[in-house]
Amino acid sequence: MNMIVCIKQVLDPEAPLSSFKIDPATNTMVPVTSVPFVISPFDEQAVEAALKIKDAKGGKITVISLGVNLLRDVVKKPLSLGADELILLEDPAFIGGDSWSTAYALAAAIKKVGQFDLIFCGRQAADSDSGQVGACIAEILGIPQVSVAKKVEAIDGKVKVDKVTTDGYEVVEVPTPALITVSNELGEVRFATFKGTMASKKKEPIIWKPADIGAEPAKIGAAGRRIKTRKLFQPVRDSKCEIIGGETDEDKAANLAKKLVEVKLI
């Protein structure tokens, strides 16, 4: 079973709100020293899904990430957990893309890897929250996809996926090769072992540039964008709490209900 997992390095989504700073000129998030880079949590789940299959059936896991200044301590994490190979699409030309141009580059890299039965992605990245890269890769590669999986089992040329739905889940079966996006319902991810970490220190990632994967420069990174960011901003609210008043507690309660309906919270 050959598996590929796509991971993204993002600013820690759990960092306190106050530590996020936006540069209004470029509409981008400015990294602050106090906010570390991590692997997007859903991508960690994707790695976990692949590892579970490797545990059960064996196989090889190739991890691919895309960006610049990818911190080795961060992106090598899957290697310490049991992934076999790490490919980094690390070039300024790759960055600044949208879901489509990112998927295009990743798909080109996957084609170059060649052999694969399953591709795993997180259901969405913790920064852009776009949730599209997986589906786009599947479309470019012309393979079936299953979104938002909580359990993945590989059975003879097929993959059986418990797909999260609003009121429960669906068991869906698709033939391999296929692409699965993984959700947090998969459960806790494993802990890096000391042996794995030591072994991963010795492994160096493979770096591919656009030319290595035969990507058309106009289709990758910022050049390949279909989506334009008009504005990035922080919603003003939070710290200010509006205290709902009233004569009695009962009045306050009624006023609160009215207010919540008014602002469409309920």
């Binding site: 306190p16 106050s18 530590s19 570390p36 802990f191």
Partner: peptide, 25 residues
């Protein structure tokens, strides 16, 4: 290890502190 221990250790490893979810810098 207990789930919460895991979360704490992961927080230390990633964020350099055990107080996962703190709103303070």
């Amino acid at each position: 290890l207990p789930e919460t221990a895991k979360a704490t250790l992961q927080s230390i490893e990633r964020r350099g502190h055990p107080w996962r979810g703190t709103t303070l810098n």
